[in-house]
Simulated assay, not measured.
Amino acid sequence: MPQDAPRVIAVVVTFNRLGLLRTLVDRLEQVPGLAEVLVVDNASTDGTGEWLAGLGGRVRARTLAENGGGARGFHDGLAWAVELEADLVWLMDDDGLPDPGCLARLLEETDLDFWGPLVVDEVEPSRLVFPIRLPGGTRVVHELADVERAATAGRIDGIVIPFNGVLVTRELVERIGLPRAEYFIWGDDHEYRLRAEAAGARIATVVDAQVRHPAVGSLGTPMMFGRTTYNHSPSDLKHYCMARNNLLNLREYKGWPHALAFVAKTVWFYTFTRPSPRRIGISLRAMYDGLRGDFTGHRKYLA
């Protein structure tokens, strides 16, 4: 990074959450050290485009011709920020709210390529919204206090939760490219982290920098007599994208044994844990589509 203060540009991806977006943009406009705020609107239908058109100052907006999901939003937004000569890009969804000092704390870390804050429950900030698997083992922690105890010099290296207030350097983007726009939702952020790791990026979570976020419920439904969990969602759209994209991520970064184990785990879950022949069908179709490079199948589940 440059020796002088880096040019930091925030990228916010939004879809039909105007109330949350207003609150976030208001917060970002007050953050010192932030050069610009770029909002990518995924063809919202709730008045978001009209509201954005009336903004000025450090805030710029683009409305996509159609809803491309978070993956398209972050792909286009990150490319836009690089075009505007950002040294660092601060990536976030519209439903998170960084603490006032979040960016300043993140910028204190100068030896990283891809790093971010903890994402805590907006109502119960002692709990994490997205649990963290601590490096070097299998322990998953859900409480802020557990993360703080595990931290060294205020951070945990090798772990980050994208794209919830993470910083990425321009150099890393130029080295590894942009997020996979075709993923639509679910797994695009994880794939980008895996790609960064494979490229040797320096990754960390800064535990005393925080983003407040609405609770998302349990991200893991117990299965196989409690020995493991499965990311079950009541949404067919989310499940289709998860099944398709997770299989591809596992095949690319872990190998076929892990990918096939995920197929078996999915079939088990919807045979024994939450019996649903229909979900088995959706899962297998999604996986088949991904393997043959078809990224259009999710469209049938769009409202």
Rank of each mutant, 00 (worst) to 15 (best):
A303M: 13
P234V: 09
T228L: 00
L20Y: 11
G33K: 00
L84E: 11
V89T: 13
L38F: 10
A151T: 02
R202E: 07
P135A: 10
H258R: 14
H190K: 14
D189F: 13
Q30S: 15
V13M: 08
L28C: 03
F225I: 04
E124N: 13
V89K: 05
V129W: 00
V263W: 00
L103W: 05
T63A: 10
D188N: 14
K265V: 11
W115F: 09
E29K: 14
T271I: 03
E182S: 15
R202N: 10
I203D: 00
D188W: 08
A286T: 01
P257H: 04
A10W: 05
I203L: 06
V59D: 00
M223L: 07
A10T: 06
S276W: 01
N231S: 11
L144D: 01
P257F: 05
D289V: 00
P275E: 08
P275A: 06
V166Q: 11
E124W: 03
Q30W: 04
R139Y: 07
I156E: 03
L250R: 15
W80N: 02
R22W: 01
T221H: 11
V82G: 09
N246M: 14
P32D: 07
T23G: 09
E171L: 05
L84N: 08
G137I: 05
E109T: 07
G281A: 12
V119D: 04
R58N: 03
R127H: 04
R180N: 15
F272L: 09
F163Q: 08
L248V: 00
R133K: 14
R27H: 09
G226R: 02
P214I: 01
V25P: 03
A86Y: 03
V119I: 13
P98L: 01
V13W: 00
P32S: 10
V89F: 06
R299P: 02
N16V: 05
H258F: 13
E85T: 04
E36H: 11
T152K: 12
K300C: 12
T63V: 14
D111V: 07
